[in-house]
Design a protein around this nucleic acid. Sequence first.
DNA 1: ATGAAAGCGCTAACAG
DNA 2: CTGTTAGCGCTTTCAT
Lengths: 331, 331
Amino acid sequence: MRRPTLEEVAAAAGVSKMTASRALRGAADVSKETITRVTQAAERVGYVGNRLALSLSSRRTNLIGVVVPSMSNIVFPEVLAGISEALEGTGMQAVFGLTDYDPGKEREVIRNMLSWRPAAMIVTGLDQPEETVKLLKQADIPVIQIMDIDGTPIDYCVGLSHTAAGEEMGRALLAEGRRKFGYVGSRLDRDQRASRRKAGFERALAEAGLRFSLEKVGDQVSSAVLGKRLTMALLAERGDLDCIYYSNDDMAAGGLFACIEHGISVPGTILLAGFNGLELTDALPAAIATSYSPRREIGRTAASLALRALSDAGENQERMVVLSPRLSLGR
Amino acid sequence: MRRPTLEEVAAAAGVSKMTASRALRGAADVSKETITRVTQAAERVGYVGNRLALSLSSRRTNLIGVVVPSMSNIVFPEVLAGISEALEGTGMQAVFGLTDYDPGKEREVIRNMLSWRPAAMIVTGLDQPEETVKLLKQADIPVIQIMDIDGTPIDYCVGLSHTAAGEEMGRALLAEGRRKFGYVGSRLDRDQRASRRKAGFERALAEAGLRFSLEKVGDQVSSAVLGKRLTMALLAERGDLDCIYYSNDDMAAGGLFACIEHGISVPGTILLAGFNGLELTDALPAAIATSYSPRREIGRTAASLALRALSDAGENQERMVVLSPRLSLGR
DNA sequence: ATGAAAGCGCTAACAG
DNA sequence: CTGTTAGCGCTTTCAT
């Protein structure tokens, strides 16, 4: 049996389709009694509205498309949670898509989402290829780019400067007296933000006339396991390092585990620095440095930007929300 | 300017709407030349199909609704990644919703999703309230319940028995000679699977005439930080434990960090056991026991079950896919 | 406060 | 191989 339509609810309540529609949406100008009758009829027949029809007819959806590169560490899930949180109670609904850091996949995911006529799009990063940007611009809806601000946003963006974050960390570690630096990362060709942090860090080193003594870059997804393995390789080649910069905290945690197994004092002998400020870093048995990136807040802000852009207040709002990572050298 | 419709593409290509529709969908029975003309016209005007209209008209969507409780540890993101992966290239698209372990929110999220007329639903757990089950049944689409198999599925389910996993771990630890057990968990009222693991573990203990000497259960979201704090509290009260069972690996990792800071040998003095088999456990500086739960595979299998249920092959397929957690006592 | 008509943009079904 | 007609289930707009 087909799902009941508004028409059937209306018939059951003895009113017209239009009245039933208004009653269910809680419109003004419907008598209290009618509302009750229609609501009960809907309940009775198990009516669930059809948003396809609603959206096609009204030419607007309650969808916000969200495109992120990966789910393999906790960062993007937290962004998504922030978006969900900010959307709660607004009637808007997030729809997620994954790109695996693949620009081609990203374009297809975005194209697919646009075919649902979302009210706004939230996409990761500022470095979409021209073709993808064109797609987004043609959609003529608010586009929020998240995580990064190093570049020119299509409409709005919220995030932090990864170049600056890397540079700041480099300066701080130099100020701590560190002089022999190693680098551990992974898939820098795909993760542009990680490589910008590295570039910023290198700029700070260069100002002090220094550079990384040795770099180990893997080509798997970043993880504690990979960070541990690369750190072991790094330590085997260079025993004289006093600081290692990692592409992120997962990798740095792995580095710490390597040091613990080697009996190397952290941060005494070697200082380890990551990025993200994962909650995990607060639990680790030794202090590691990190830049806290406000992931949940980025998600919340992105959703708010989208909501405001959709309301009339959209015109006079900031196009770029710059959040600063909170740098910590460890407890 | 409004987004171009199929009609405009058809006009630009000098054919009818229907021919344009068929050409764009790559239907058989369209001349090669027409296909080229229509495709080029579509490209030229920047046509992006409208799925609202497509789905309303054809009475089917390419949507698979996915409802999970949380994004605050890596488990569900990995399930989602598995679903995305299995759906790739099938034309189907996952739509995610979050419940925060709140049955009321779950019902609303599901109701909202159903209004988009998804082709199938994937929901977490087997313990939805009756009202929610009714909603799902009325939708008359395949429903896949994931993570758990302790219960009766609506249509299909894929997961593992958490009771059995807990019991198996309990037996294994007893076989290792452990006798003084502590338990550390959080929010057991909300996370039914964690509490089933605990119950299974307790059953194994009971068979040996034992029980937990002390339990510490927090009411925050599980995390390494919480696991560490509760472990410290546990150790402060009971110095004689030789084994601690945790609600999951995040908590157990925190427990390990507490032990490292206390200079307690793991697993020599105390054996720590978690659940999930997170990749992190392979990197930790000491071995902890865990049951590997095939999260990505659960996601992939759930998506496959949905796809097969939607095809004609749906009839004669297993309704229940039981995966066994691989138990590991550590490296 | 309620209803009737028209149409959102597309596809199914049938014709040719 | 291509076109025509009739909706999909709802809202918008205009009447009453």
